[in-house]
């Protein structure tokens, strides 16, 4: 079963990389950008076939390793 984890910075945490992207887009002539935040996507292929169990395991993975919950939020999507 495939799953996808999105990790994003919490609100209020300064994101220098997002800022750099915002400036670069501005330099390319893209106007009207109110903000850019950079995150990451982790795609997993799991042997588990029960979506609820998969989600519980993914949550544990996020808490233990995939996200730094001091500064990051995560969201889990079980794709089936």
């Amino acid at each position: 079963m495939k799953a996808r984890v999105d990790i994003t910075l919490k609100n209020g945490v300064l994101d220098p990389q997002g800022k750099a992207i915002e400036h670069a887009l501005g330099a390319l002539g893209f106007g009207g950008i109110n903000g850019v935040r950079q995150g990451k996507v982790i795609e997993l292929d799991l042997a588990e076939t029960d979506p609820a169990k998969a989600e519980a395991t993914l949550k544990e993975m996020c808490e233990k390793l995939l996200a730094n919950t001091v500064i990051e939020n995560y969201s889990i999507e079980v794709l089936g």
Binding site: L14, P16, Q17, A20, V70, I71
Partner: peptide, 16 residues
């Protein structure tokens, strides 16, 4: 910090 022995976080330098 990642192991939890010290608090807070270390982020990308503000000047990139």
């Amino acid at each position: 910090i990642e192991s939890g022995l010290l608090p807070g976080a270390l982020m990308r330098n503000s000047g990139i």
